[in-house]
């Protein structure tokens, strides 16, 4: 069983989400990371980075806020230790990259071009642009497209580039179209949405970083909405869907809205074996709904209202080919 995503073949349609799986090693204790679609690594920057002070996390209803501040070892140590291990392990890898300037994104892409052992690049444009008063790249079409065009130019043409979009925008479809025009081979939807918690005992913000990214099941309807809106204007671009997926049914919802593959993020904190469980549940549910290939279910919720529905399977379920 394989899943096709922007021209690459993956073992399945369920991936980890960036920042929720480190570089795969920890989760490999709980399930075989080579059996899922791919490990999407924590966003890596050019230099080592300490991240923010603690508290970095606050639990919220059906979700959590985080403000980690992109802690990481820098691209060189990442390549030497993390990517080398993933490659040795035989896992499929999507490297997430982040930068404070367009130039930093481009420089990381240049470094990555000198290496192999990964399948795609996810560009985390939900970072503050230090050259633009900390405005987040993903919040404006021109700055988002600028980063994507630079990374696309600097990268091996055989490596697909996914733009990871923020939901904190007025019109996500416009940003998605700008990224596609700038050369994105695919999109990742969605990043966390900005939130805040005030501790009523200390009467101060709960996070040292004051605001944080909200993730988990609480944001799932926002993610499905974003996916739907982007799919309406870009019928063909490959999309990795994510945002609060915690079971096969949630994953199937994203497929129906237009995702070719899904990422499981915050749920990993709750259930470290969730990615493989969800991949299996998704296969069963797709089969139950009568799909013999997952591809046929992608964007199925967008079909004409008068188009007849695929009939549910009866009798023994035959699990679908992912393709």
């Amino acid at each position: 069983m394989t899943t096709q995503l922007a021209g690459i073949d993956l073992p399945g349609p369920v991936l980890t989400a960036s920042g929720c799986a480190a570089a795969g090693k920890e989760l490999d204790q709980f399930f075989d990371i080579t059996a899922i679609g791919a490990v999407v690594t924590k966003s890596i920057m050019m230099e080592p980075r300490s991240g923010r002070a603690t508290p970095r996390m606050a639990e919220t209803p059906s979700g959590m806020l985080n403000s980690i501040g992109l802690q990481g070892p820098g691209i060189e140590a990442f390549l030497e230790h993390d990517l080398a291990w993933l490659r040795e392990r035989g896992a499929r890898v999507i490297v997430s990259i982040a930068g404070g300037t367009t130039q930093e994104f481009e420089a990381i892409a240049h470094v990555l071009r000198q290496h192999d052992g990964f399948d795609a690049i996810e560009v985390n444009i939900s970072c503050p642009n230090v050259s633009d008063r900390g405005q987040v790249f993903a919040c404006r079409a021109d700055s988002a497209a600028g980063v994507i065009a630079s990374v696309r130019r600097a990268s091996d043409p055989a490596i697909p580039i996914f733009a990871k979009l923020s939901p904190d925008v007025t019109d996500i479809a416009t940003i998605a179209q700008a990224c596609e025009r700038a050369g994105a081979d695919g999109l990742s939807l969605i990043n966390t949405t900005l939130g805040m918690v005030i501790d009523v005992t200390t009467m101060r913000p709960a996070l040292a970083g004051v605001t944080g990214g909200l993730s988990g099941p609480a944001i799932r309807p926002i993610a499905v909405r974003c996916l739907w809106q982007v799919r309406e204007v870009l019928p063909d671009i490959p999309i990795i869907g994510m945002g609060g997926i915690r079971n096969g049914s949630d994953a199937f919802e994203f497929i129906l809205a237009g995702a070719s593959a899904v990422s499981v993020g915050t749920t990993v904190f709750h259930d470290p074996s969730a990615p493989i469980r969800i991949q299996n549940e998704l296969a069963s549910l797709a089969a139950l709904r009568g799909f013999t290939r997952l591809r046929d279910a992608v964007s199925y919720a967008h079909r004409d209202p008068d188009q007849a529905r695929v009939e549910d399977a009866d009798g023994d379920l035959e699990l679908p080919e992912w393709v």
Binding site: N66, V268, P272
Partner: peptide, 16 residues
């Protein structure tokens, strides 16, 4: 005793 989200080393919440 540091507040943790995952306990397994992937979330980077419990640093010092």
């Amino acid at each position: 005793e540091e507040a943790m989200a995952c306990g397994i080393g992937v979330c980077m919440s419990c640093v010092l």
